[in-house]
Nucleic acid binder design. Structure first.
Length: 423
RNA sequence: GGAUGGGUGGCAGAGUGGUCGAAUGCGCACGCUUGGAAAGCGUGUUAGGCUUAACCGUCUACGAGGGUUCGAAUCCCUCCCCAUCCGCCA
């Protein structure tokens, strides 16, 4: 969340920066400011009363010890109780209200973020490789996969629900090979520490990484235990250090985690389309960084490069676009999306989204470090997919399909898959 | 799920109604000492809020919430978590 002290100090500047996002946010800033003023008034009154009570109570203790009569002075302070209780409730309520308001206000985009209204305004930053040229009409991954027995949508629906799939035989092995390839690459050459986190998390974790309270309808919830299925490893992994005060020499922290991801995708376009591109469950290897504020912009570039390296190694043409202010995610200050070419679709697929959240998430989860002067400061957090598996799988099948209907496995993946081709 | 014992500062661990944000030890930081280090000595070392340019001051927090009281780490209630044992189980 945003810093209330900063909002108080420079409300117009905050409003101006938020105005670049979609949606009307300046009235929310006004609301939080009103609440803040009331809260502080109530708090000051309460504290005055508490200070008086403490002073008198101390006096009573001293007098009793001296054997003096205290009944009169006790009667005097007895009346404090009711006022204090009322003011305490008022303060607590205003405090909660202020926090709720702050949780609903998105992050301010970074100054370097390109201005724009929506996805159409996202600039392309760079591209790697080129669209492959086929001597035949490239097939969709759905057709390729069903012919080769790589996955089974019908049976997955039978045992679960639409928009789930079941990988089978060599298809399951390919998925596993990709997971291992991604994790090995990031941990061996990227310097990331591997994490295998819980797949069910509590609400506090989801608040920390901004999935709650605003996006509850996208989450699978187990009400019996009040736990949620992870929509991304970002949630458990970033929250690993929630409410901690890290030492300077611990930074930067770099984690890589493989998890399945569960998303309800309520209202999402393309859910009804057969295929691996949008599903309720998919695998992903996520990269998470916790770093010093001065380093986060540089770390974002490195993070994006780490994700790109995967596509390069697999010989997949992609482009990097930067999200403009109007298309930026709720908590992000700056985001790069990586889109891989999928010839069977005739379009690019988003396989990675790399974001710098600055101190926005850290503030929500009280994630701090002790600076050079011994003062506690909020860390900066980042994350990026490295990469999403299902769409990478699509790209792999569609880009490396052969005229005879087989799939060539790229060289670096062969030790993991155990063969040179599928089919 | 059942039983028992516990949750206090970075860690260990005192404290069972008042001067306790909290003894002591360890750790850590700085200083003295030293050729240098160790030892020794000294000083400091939780977090959040309000107020402030800052210092100061003040409030809150001893797992969480509520209650009793002029006053709660300390007494009462509820909940959560941890440990061990039993049951169940990959």
């Amino acid at each position: 969340m945003l810093d209330i002290a900063l909002i108080r100090k420079t409300p117009d500047e905050i409003k101006a920066r938020l105005a670049a996002r979609s949606g009307e946010l300046s009235s929310q800033i006004d609301a939080v400011l009103r609440c803040d003023t009331q809260r502080r008034q109530a708090e000051t009154k309460l504290q005055q009363l508490q200070a008086d009570r403490n002073r008198i109570s101390k006096e009573i203790g001293a007098k009793k010890k001296a054997g003096e009569d205290t009944s009169e002075i006790e009667a005097q302070v007895r009346g404090f109780g009711e006022d204090m209780k009322r003011l305490n409730e008022e303060t607590t309520a205003l405090d909660t209200e202020q926090r709720d308001l702050l949780l609903g206000i998105p992050n301010t985009p970074h100054e370097a973020c390109p201005a724009g209204a929506d996805a159409a305004a996202n600039p392309e930053i760079r591209a790697w490789g080129a669209k492959p040229v086929f001597t035949f009409q490239p097939k969709s991954h759905v057709e390729l996969g069903e012919k080769l027995g790589l996955f089974d949508f019908n049976r997955a629906t039978k045992i679960s629900a639409p928009a789930f799939t079941c990988y089978t035989g060599p298809g399951a092995r390919l998925e596993r090979a990709l997971i291992n390839f991604l994790l090995d690459t990031h941990t061996r050459t990227g310097g990331y520490t591997e994490i295998a986190p819980p797949l069910l998390v509590n609400a506090d974790a989801l608040i920390g990484t901004t999935q709650l309270p605003k996006f509850a309808d996208q989450l699978y919830h187990c009400p019996e235990d009040d736990l949620y299925l992870v929509p991304t490893a970002e949630v458990p992994v970033t929250n690993l250090h929630r409410e901690e005060i890290l030492k300077l020499d611990q930074l930067p922290i770099k984690y890589a985690a493989y998890t399945p991801c569960f998303r309800r995708e309520a209202g999402a376009a393309g859910l009804g389309t057969r295929g691996l591109i949008r599903m309720h469950q998919f695998d992903k290897v996520e990269l998470v960084k916790i770093c010093h504020p001065s380093q986060s912009m540089a770390e974002l570039e490195l993070l994006t490069a780490d994700a790109e390296k995967i596509l390069q190694t697999l010989g997949l043409h992609y482009r990097v676009i930067e999200l403009c202010t109007g298309d930026l995610g709720f908590g992000s200050a700056k985001t790069y999306d990586i889109e891989v070419w999928a010839p069977g679709q005739g379009s690019y697929l988003e396989v990675s989204s790399c974001s710098n959240f600055a101190d926005y998430q850290a503030r929500r989860m009280a994630l701090r470090y002790k600076d050079e002067n011994g003062k506690n400061q909020f860390c900066h957090t980042l994350n990026g997919s490295g990469t999403a598996l299902a769409r990478l799988y699509v790209a792999l099948l569609e880009n490396h399909q052969q005229p005879d209907g087989t799939i060539a496995i790229p060289e670096p993946l062969r030790p993991y898959f155990g063969a040179e081709k599928i089919g």
